[in-house]
Every structure is written in structure tokens, then in C-alpha cells.
Design a protein around this nucleic acid. Structure first.
Lengths: 202, 202
DNA sequence: CCAATAATTGACCAATCAGTACAAAATTAA
DNA sequence: TTAATTTTGTACTGATTGGTCAATTATTGG
């Protein structure tokens, strides 16, 4: 069966690029959610046929798992890169939340955060998928924690509050903004970020 | 056709209580979301037949509109009552967020906030329903604003920040906690509330 | 008692859902 | 060239979707 490397393998070659297809599928799942995204929507976006999809990915659910995993790994890298680009973790946080206040495409506001959406859709419905999304969000929290600790040491982050709680606070802020961006102007979102960041300053 | 008062009306009487049925439908829509809630799920919970439902409410969508409206009016009353029960608006806010940190039923954590869920599910998919949920959340914001202003006058709320921004902040906090309650312990949620409430204190 | 009206019931409907089956096409190893 | 293997394309499947319809039942006013 499928999922093999292309070299030294008998049989017809795959005609589509898996990464490109996963990227297209991500867009569909992200904008529509898991349930509302139909196989027809997905196949049209991925520009492949049913046979190719089931042969390569297994099922709609398996495709979603691949998409979710790939999305998270990218997010993890982006986030870490943003923290590493600044000496002060506060600036890293600002840069991360710039995705929310000033997204590349204005349409991104309606999409929100893919992990938050998935947790919201699946919690109480499909605990396996909910747990997957929840654990990835908790990994985001541990990234916050790492750089907050560094900032506390350097006197850039207040040391009166525990880094653990401040990390949870940042994730809660992210969760909130993932919803609030669907209702507020850029100015309000920016004001909201700066106001809340006060809680991290020494 | 239907929707009439019971007195002075020819024809068979309705055998079910509309409020009870709406309450049951609310539970289904709240836990499953609009799309995932099937007519079968709804009819089972409401304990009525298809004909009765379509005769009384019109369609799945119309039923949802009734449910959403009824839910919001109840929430509006509860919220106002909680603010009115305390002299200090900070205590009103604490009482409102107690729904999140200490819900009547632990299962409520998975349900989150019905308005937040609806905005999340519908934004980018069904703008009419999204706008409905968004506007109701914005009405929640104006309730916060009213009592924050009162608190500023009484010296209970800090006057350095604008009440408008603080109201947005509270709604953002609500949005965030509606997601975060699906991943954090009661203790963490309570710490999160108290930490963030610092931003409102004089 | 009868006509009008309205709620209930369950059978029915077309559309859509995720998923399968299988033949045709393309590729490698022998 | 041939056998083995894999991908592709499409027709098909059974289940479920929201919604309709008409017969039945219950009620009111005349």
C-alpha cells in the first residue's frame, strides 16, 4: 500500500504533492471546521480524486490528524522563532499577537486559531480530537513558560507573579483574542493586547 | 397556522410545553453546535415529533434563532441581577465568572459559552447567525460598561484606564475562559480570574 | 351535531454524507 | 515483455441529512 518513498518502488508514481494537498486541506478544515468540511470541499481544494485521497491518507479523520499535526509543528517553529528574534520576551509576545491584530489577510480574522476552533468543536463530541487539540495548546503554554522564565531572570518580566500562572494567562489571552478578533477593530485588539501585557511587566 | 395563544382558538391544543422544548433544544445546540445537532437529536431531546416541530417552529434554523434569543435574554437577566446584588462591580464580575470556575455541573466545562461557540462555528460560514451571536456578545459588553462606569464613579474601579477598554477586556477575558475552562483545573481558572481582575482595581 | 381549524403522527423524499470497489493507467524489477 | 505493484478516476453504496405531506385526532364556535 501507499505512504512509501518514491525511490526503488514499483508502481505508478503519485501525481500530486502531499504537502501542497495538506496545505489546501488545512485551509478547508480551518475555515469550516472538521464536521462541516465535506469530502467534496476537501477534494476540490486539494485538487485530487477520491481514490487518491483514501489511498494516501486513509480517511477524513486520518487526513485531519495529519493536518492538525502539521499545523501545530509549523506553529511551534514560528512561535519559537519569534521569541528567539527578540532579547525581551515581551517583544516576542507582541510579535506573536501581531498575527491576531494585523493578520496577513483580513479574512484570517474569521478563521481564528485552528487549535482553539478544534478544541471548541470537539470538546464533548469527540474526546480524542479534543485531547489532541488541548495537548497542543498546552505545549504552546510551555513555550510561553520557557521564555517568561528567561525574562524573569533578566528582569524583563515581573517576578511577583509565578511564571506558570503568567504562561496560563498568555494562553488564556490567546484563546480570548481568537474569539474577540471576530468582533473587534484592529485598534481595539491592539489596545487590548497592550493593556493585558501590563500584567507581565516588572 | 400556529404560534397562537391557547384561548379562543379553534383546533387541537398543543400537547407539549414550548418553553420546556426550547430548553431541551438549547441543551442539544449548546453541547453539539448548530450543524452537528441533527433533527433526530433535537426531536428526541424535545420529546416531540417532526410534524409538531416544523408546525410550531418552522425549521431547524428558526428553532435555533428562538433558542439563541431565549438564551441571551436569560443570560442578560442573570448578569444584571448579579451586578445588582453587589455594591462593588468587582464582586459582580467575580460572581459572573464563578459560572466558569465553579459551574453547577462539571460537564458544563465542555459546553463553554453558547454565544462564543456560535460565533466560532458560524463566523465565515453563516454570517447572519455569526452576526446575531456577535451582537449579543457586544450587548454583554455594554452591561459590563454600565457597571464599570458606576464603579469608576464610586472609586471601586481604576480611573486610569477607559471604561470602554476595560469592558472589552472583560469580554475578552470571558471569551478566553470559555475556551480555557476546557483545559484547566478549577484552581488555575480561579487564579487566572483574580490575576486579570488586578487590571480593574484602582 | 357539524364545519372549521389546528396539532400529531409516521411514512416518505431528494440531497448529501463518508467510504468502497474496481478497472485503467503508470511505473519498476525481472 | 511480462509480472508485480501502486496511483488514478469514477461509478456505486448504504446511511443520514433536513424537510414535506396527508391522514388522523382533538378542539372551538355556530
Amino acid at each position: 500500500m501507499g505512504h512509501q518513498s518514491i525511490d526503488k518502488m514499483a508502481g505508478r508514481h503519485r501525481e500530486f504533492d502531499v504537502e501542497t494537498a495538506l496545505s489546501a486541506a488545512t485551509e478547508v478544515f480551518w475555515t469550516q471546521g472538521y464536521d462541516s468540511a465535506s469530502m467534496e470541499d476537501l477534494l476540490t481544494a486539494m485538487n485530487i480524486n477520491k481514490g487518491s485521497m483514501y489511498n494516501t491518507f486513509g480517511s477524513k479523520r486520518d487526513l485531519f490528524l495529519r493536518v492538525l499535526d502539521r499545523f501545530f509543528k509549523n506553529a511551534q517553529h514560528d512561535m519559537t522563532a519569534k521569541f528567539e528574534a527578540f532579547d525581551n520576551p515581551l517583544d516576542g509576545v507582541r510579535e506573536i499577537f501581531r498575527q491576531v491584530t494585523r493578520p496577513a489577510d483580513v479574512k484570517d480574522h474569521a478563521k481564528g486559531c485552528f487549535l482553539v476552533n478544534t478544541l471548541g468543536e470537539m470538546c464533548g463530541m469527540d474526546e480524542e480530537l479534543a485531547t489532541l487539540a488541548r495537548n497542543k495548546l498546552l505545549e504552546v503554554e510551555t513555550i510561553y513558560l520557557k521564555y517568561l522564565r528567561k525574562g524573569v531572570k533578566n528582569g524583563q518580566i515581573r517576578k511577583e507573579a509565578s511564571p506558570e500562572l503568567m504562561a496560563k494567562f498568555l494562553l488564556n489571552m490567546w484563546n480570548g483574542m481568537s474569539i474577540s478578533r471576530r468582533m473587534y477593530s484592529r485598534k481595539s485588539l491592539e489596545d487590548l493586547v497592550e493593556m493585558q501585557l501590563q500584567l507581565l511587566k516588572p
